[in-house]
Design a protein around this nucleic acid. Structure first.
Length: 293
DNA sequence: AATCGGCACACT
DNA sequence: TAGTGTGCC
């Protein structure tokens, strides 16, 4: 994995996207435990998207709707429409285009799936840095941002958001006082600023909420995005990677969620991604292709 | 027959 | 180049 890059990469992921689309069509479903299911006949249909309220009851993707109702009696079930016997995803594809259009005003985007897109913010960040400095960045501009690895001291905070804010303040403080090697971190922070604005624009124009990760490459951005969902974004600086990796199961890294991940784990006898640092690139290449760099 | 089916990709 | 396997949503 290419670390040590100057790039700023973001991954934006719509929160339970199909559910949000159905909730926009039928506002009664908003703020309720809710799923989207397809094909009614077998056990009530298979669930393909789950609201966070429903997740709290243990409902998950790939469950049968009938089984989910047992976990969550007041579950709302929206149905995917069918056309000639097949599930018709057109409404979600159209909603996806709406989102992409708004995001494209901020940077060149790379669509990764119906509900995910990567963006290279390197250029936008450089431009922005010409008219501003660290002191111009305030916590108010980063109101949904987490900075992974901060606060560094484990403090008892009154709420989750109080802790987030404490971490953010610590991060900004460190950024303005440490002169040199923090250039990359400053770039990530400006990237986070842009992503805050972009996500606000997406919600304003489409009504849809999303989460995001901001880091130096696609794998790290994707990982960061998953750390604080829904409706939040996470900056993952290089300095916070070792601690995060030391307890991160291999399968959490994109593309290692299946057989490859299991074989890495079994062949090398390790649990966490961080454990891989003890092997040389040559060692990894002789076991697996030239894909694991 | 029952966790769909489509898409992207790596490899051969 | 086409066909297969994998991974993800």
């Amino acid at each position: 994995m290419d670390i040590g890059e100057d790039r700023v990469i973001a991954l934006v992921d719509m929160d339970c996207f199909y559910v949000q689309v159905e909730q926009r069509i039928n506002p009664e479903l908003k703020n309720k435990p809710c799923v989207v299911a397809q094909y009614k006949t077998w056990k009530g249909g298979g669930i393909i998207a789950v609201s966070y309220e429903a997740r709290a009851h243990g409902v998950s993707r790939n469950m049968w709707a009938d089984d989910a109702r047992k976990l969550c009696p007041d579950l709302q079930v929206a149905r995917v429409r069918e056309a000639h016997g097949k599930a018709d995803l057109t409404p979600y594809r159209e909603a996806s285009v709406e989102v992409i259009e708004v995001m494209s005003r901020f940077a060149v985007i790379e669509r990764a799936s119906i509900d995910e897109a990567y963006m290279d913010l390197t250029g936008s960040v450089q431009d922005r840095l010409k008219h501003m400095s660290v002191q111009d960045i305030t916590p108010q501009q980063l109101k949904s941002t987490y900075t992974q690895g901060f606060p560094q001291t484990s403090t008892s905070d009154p709420s989750e958001d109080a802790r987030r804010l404490r971490g953010l303040q610590q991060w900004l403080e460190r950024l303005s006082s440490s002169g040199q090697s923090s250039r990359a971190e400053l770039c990530l922070t400006v990237g986070a600023l842009i992503v805050e604005e972009m996500r606000a624009a997406v919600e304003e124009h489409t009504g849809f909420r999303c989460s995001a990760g901001i880091s130096h490459n696609k794998v790290l951005a994707k990982l960061a995005c998953g750390l604080n969902k829904p409706n939040h974004q996470t900056v993952l600086p290089l300095g916070s990677v070792p601690e995060l990796f030391s307890t991160l199961p291999i399968r959490k890294i994109r593309n290692l969620g299946g057989k490859l991940g299991t074989s890495v784990k079994e062949t090398l006898g390790v649990e966490n991604i961080g454990d891989l640092t003890q092997f040389s690139k040559v060692q990894l290449e002789q076991h697996f292709g030239e894909k694991t760099g």
